[in-house]
Each structure stands twice: as C-alpha cells, then as structure tokens.
Design a protein around this nucleic acid. Structure first.
Lengths: 362, 362
DNA sequence: CTCGGTTATGACACCGATGTCATGACACCG
DNA sequence: CGGTGTCATGACATCGGTGTCATAACCGAG
C-alpha cells in the first residue's frame, strides 16, 4: 500500500506538502497541488488512519456495545421491540458526524462486556454508547475518564449520561386517545410488573384515567407476562389474563397490551372466543413494531416506543460530550406518538352526541 | 492515556521489556515480569492498536458492508428474511478469531459503498465481507488487492469468492417433504420470477415432482409478488394468485409460498374464504423466519434459508483467504433443512394404507 | 535598494509500538 | 581457565502521518 512518502516522491515534493494537500490546512501552489493529486490517484493512495491516530491521539472511532445483532434471532420469546432500531438510529446519527462506528455485540452475555470495552480502549475510541435491550438499570465496569460513555435505553446509579424512553408519557397518551374515542372501561394487560417500563406505564395509565375523571379499577390491570418466559407459558398467562378481564361483571371495551407481540397473540385468542375485532372488543398494543402493527388485520393501534429516536439522541448527546459540553444532570426522556390503527373502535357517546352513533373509527 | 514508556518507567525497565511481557515472545525474569505487570495494572495501561498497526501493517480489522441494520426498520414491504441474520452469523464466527469487526451500513444506498470501502481502506482492514439483502448479482468497485473480499448472499462476474444459499436444494427438500405427506397437487406461489432465488427454487420444485413421478402443471406455479411492491399491491397480487389456483378444476391440497411473510398473509386470506388450516388446505413458506413460523397458528412449515450459516461460512472463507489459502473456484452453496410445522396436513393415502386415514400431522 | 511581510515549501522530531542487533551475566564443556 | 551458548535486557531504528520551525522566493512600501 502506498504511503505519503511514495506520493511525495512521485510528485517531486516533500511528504509535508502532500499532507497539506490532503488536509488543505495551508496554501499550496495550484501547479504543485495538481501534481500531488495526480500522484495520489495514480498510486491509489489512501492515508492510514492508524498513523493519524498516533500523531493526533484521536481515532475518530465511536464504540457501540449491544446485543441487538446476535439476539435478534432468538428474540422470539422476548417481549418487545428489537433494540436493533436503537442501533439503527445511532448509525444514522453518526453517519453525518464523520466518525466511524465500531460495533461490538455481546452475544447476549453481559460478562463479555469488559472484553469488548478493552478492545475499544485498544482502538482508542473517543466514546462508547451502551445499548440495552429494554428499559432497565445496568452496571458497567468503570471506563478510563478520557472515554465518554452514554447509556441508551438504560441508566445506572452513577449518573452516567443516559437516554430513556418516556414510558409514562407513552401509555398516558395512548389511554388518553382511547378515552377520546369514547372508551370508559379500559383494561391494561401489562408486561412483568418488575420492569421499569411497566411501573412507568401503569402510572401513565392512571394519570390518563384521573385526568378524565374515570375511577381506577385494579381488576382491569393484570400483569400478563413474566420475564423470559417460554412460548407456552406466555400464551397461557395471556389467555388467563384475557379471560379474567372479559368475565368481569362490567368487562372492558378495550384492552391495552404490554407490547404488540402480546396484542398479536391476543388477536387469535379473542377471535377464538368468537369476538369480532374491533366490533366487539378494541385492542391496543405498545411499541408500534411495524412488522406487527401494519401486517395485522385490522392494523393495530399502538404507542410508539421511539427506539430510533433514542439512538439518535444518545449519539447527539455523546457528540456533544466529545465537544466538551457538560453532561445533563438527569436522563433524557424521549417521547413517541400514538399510531392509530383499525383495532380501536370509536364508541357511540351514550348521551352527548347521538349523531356519532354507529360511526366507526377510521 | 498511559503508554508503554510510562509503564517502562514505572517498572524501571526498558519499553522493549514491557513489550516482551505483553506479547510473551521472549523470556522475562519472573521478578521483572511481576514488576511490569503491576505497573501495567496500576497505570491501567492498554496498548494502542494504532501503534501496533503501524508497526506491523496488520490492523486485525475485518470490514463488513451491509444494509441490514438500517433497512430492518423499513423492511416491512420487502420480501424476505432479514439479512441481519447473516450479520449475526459473521459476528459469531469472527468472535473466536481475534479479529475486530468494523460494520458499515449502507443505509440502503448502494452509491455509498465506495465511501465505506474508502473508510475501510483508511483503517487498513485485512478483509471485507459484503452482505446483500437477498440472493443477487452485484457489482462492487475494485478494491486494492491487499484486501481480501468475500461476497455473502450475492455473487459477481469477476469470480470474487462468494457464499450463496442453495435455493434449489431448499425448495426441492420442501416439496419432497410435502410429497412424503401424501400431497400430489402442489401449488407454488413464488416471489418475483426475475429473482435468482425464484429460478433456482422453481427448478427445485420441478426436480422434486419429477423424482416422484408427478406431472408438472404450469397452472400451479404463479408468481405472486413483484419486486419492492407497496403493501396494497402485494396483498392484491397474492389474493389473485391464491384465487387462481383454488379455482382450478383440480385445486391443490397444499400451497407453497415464496416466503413466510406471504404465507402469513395467506393465512388471513384463506380463512376469509372459509377454509380451515390445515384441514382444508395446507400451507408452506420459505425462510423459516421464526418470528413468523413459530408465532402463527398453526405453526408454519418452512424451508430454512440458512442466513446465519451463510454468514459463518463467509467468515470462515475470508479467514482462510487471509491465511493464504487459495480461493474456491465457484460459489459455496449453503443448504438448510425443512422445518415442519402444523400448517401441512398428512393426507390419507388413497390406496396404500387405510390405517393412516384421518391421522393428522404432528 | 532595503526591509517587513506574505507565500510556498521542506527538514526534523514525534506519536507508541516492536523488530533487529548488541551487550552483559551466567552456566557449561572440554 | 577460556570459549561457547543461553538468558535477560536495552539501545535504536522504523512504521506513516503531522506539528513546529526554518528557509527561500517574492512583493510592495518607504
């Protein structure tokens, strides 16, 4: 591979002049510049980032730690939206920054993280983004202070800068939209109650009810998933939870599920009970996992879990830190919109407006 | 960040001795070794791969070009299995090799590929794996001969080493398994006929028929997808194709679809015609995209598109090339098994065995 | 004509590893 | 005891860029 010296010799100038042509950081006579550029393209010269890194002590590399790539295959049993979307957001945001992304996959084994960090340190990455597969607390090994760290979809107890989904706001907005469609009995079949997301979202659910002056009925809120269940167990739990709310004296008119995958399963379960969607019962999911929400019939109403935006925000945050900006003192919360689908029916308003009776949601 | 000189000073030895400790390439007195190791951990010293790369002219980096990460989100309309699974296989295979993977995503724009290659060249990657999102011919810009190139899920006209799915074998095995279950009228609603995969698979379909002494009926083979359709068009095309084969004088007992996603849509369409799965009609997919095959009810019989294996094979091939082995003279074909699901019914054998009448497939 | 300032270029050192060669201390053998 | 080989270690150059400083050519003002 050609070096800057080869180019210099071919163009009959000093290496430093070639360097100036490459970086445009000092005036070069037009004629010399042409000769150098010709030599460069003739030799197919590409500067070595290793040499640059050595001299400048800046690698231009950003490290990314994730399990998104390896886990995507086995992710059939897991709960939610693939964290790959976060990676995607990061990728997009880094693209325009001139940095290069070094992706390391944990293969789902967190014990490999120290090794990955080590590799990043060897490559002198300027910053690291750690991506978790769902909203959770993490604990990473300490990293040399000259490497900036940002957590995406997770947080720790050392106030490391982090970017999180605004789960409370998401569920709040979703339930609010259901109420706007005339629903008053709103069931919530949540994910495992131990999850941060579940706590936040339940709070959002209650907040929306309170705001609308609706009473909170604990019978309508049923955890319908546990962490890392097998397929069979998941279906059983879900079946039971659905049965429980449907057989209440005053059953719900709409059921919210902890994620779109649960809702997808519910479509089958509800229909096997002879229910028509959304005529007899409305359904809402969470995540807006388009593969599901847009493919199902009717399309599924869902609150967006803004993973791509989280990735982008996390990257922007990291780039700012690298620029010397001060870290924020609390996690950055990213909100997402509600995507309406055909799975939620607009209910006739019992008293107020007779004109809307029988109208279907669009 | 500490350097080897800092460590040397702290341990009271020369940098070269520290280097020997790091690489274990020459004997070091036990006592010296201890002192050096202590200095290393005290200073948190991590060697710089940039400096190593400069000296040895070996970066230990492998470049990966793919659209898998960015395209996964928008991949709702696209046909098949996410190529991310290939990336995953590569990741896994590289893990044990001591190399580091540099992943560059095209963002779906092939015109960005030269830039990505340029970045890889700057980082002096030892090899590049190019991953295509479906079995196809590609044409990459030329790369300096000191960088080895391997194509995964694609091939070119310059005999670049490549690894491809064995589509013919896959469809052959699938149809063979259907015949084994007693099916004689087997429809094939394929992907776009312009695809390499479709040509290969159709050949495999015919091969299996011929082998079983069944006549090939062109009416039973209908292209039911075009390239990059919108959702609406895709559904219409599929609906029409299904209608066409079901209204034949002698309709099929089983329909094979070009991929699992088509089969997933077909579940809804077939049921809306009042058909029972698999009682009235059997269904088979292609890809074994587990998110679909295992979530559908009944689970979907599908031929596996061995993407992870393709990734692994491509990586192994590249590592061998880096080791100086000669490239193979033709593409490496990777076969996959058939994964039986509940969507294919075992037909009663009209004459042979009465005892199997009414028995369902497991 | 001379001087201060700009333009264009090169010499040289340095970034952090490691290969090469040299050196000193021993041990062993004849 | 001297020669030879092994062990343990260090001095120095080198990889490919770029920052610093020096230098030469040139220009216009006084």
């Amino acid at each position: 591979m050609a070096t800057i010296y080869d180019v210099a010799k071919a163009a009959g100038v000093s290496p430093k002049t070639v360097s100036r042509v490459l970086n445009g950081d000092a005036p070069v006579k037009k004629e010399t510049l042409d000769r150098v550029q010709q030599a460069i393209s003739q030799l197919g010269y590409v500067p070595s980032s290793a040499a640059r890194t050595m001299r400048s002590n800046k690698s231009g590399l950003i490290g990314l730690i994730t399990g998104a790539i390896s886990m995507n295959a086995n992710a059939i049993d897991t709960s939610g939206l693939p964290d790959l979307f976060i990676v995607q957001g990061i990728q997009k945001a880094i693209e325009s920054s001139g940095k290069t992304l070094l992706i390391a996959d944990t293969g789902g084994k967190t014990e490999r993280v120290p090794d990955l960090i080590r590799t990043f340190e060897e490559h002198r990455v300027e910053g690291i983004i750690y991506v978790a597969d769902f909203h959770q607390q993490v604990s990473l090994p300490r990293i040399g202070s000259d490497i900036k760290l940002v957590l995406a979809n997770c947080y720790d107890d050392r106030a490391t800068p982090s970017v999180l989904p605004h789960d409370r706001q998401g569920q709040y907005a979703l339930v609010r939209s259901l109420i706007a469609k005339g629903h008053r009995r709103i069931a919530y079949l949540s994910l495992s109650p131990n999850l941060d997301a579940t706590r936040e979202r339940t709070a959002g659910y209650r907040e929306a009810l309170t705001e609308a002056g609706l009473a909170f009925d604990p019978e309508l809120v049923v955890p319908a998933e546990i962490e890392s269940p097998d397929r069979e167990t998941a279906v059983q739990l879900l079946w039971d939870a659905i049965d429980r709310v449907l057989t209440l004296p005053e059953p719900p008119t709409v059921i919210c599920f902890g994620n779109d995958r649960m809702a997808m399963r519910a479509y089958g379960i509800l229909r096997s009970r002879g229910l028509n969607l959304p005529g007899d019962i409305s359904v809402a999911g969470y995540d807006n996992y388009r593969l599901i929400t847009e493919t199902l019939y009717p399309t599924l109403t869902s609150a967006e879990l803004p993973y791509a935006a989280i990735g982008i925000r996390a990257t922007q945050l990291l780039l700012k830190l690298l620029d010397g900006e001060a870290p924020p003192d609390k996690p950055i919360l990213v909100s997402g919109p509600v995507t309406p689908g055909g799975s939620v029916r607009e209910l006739p308003r019992p008293i107020t407006k007779l004109s809307t009776v029988g109208r279907k949601s669009t």
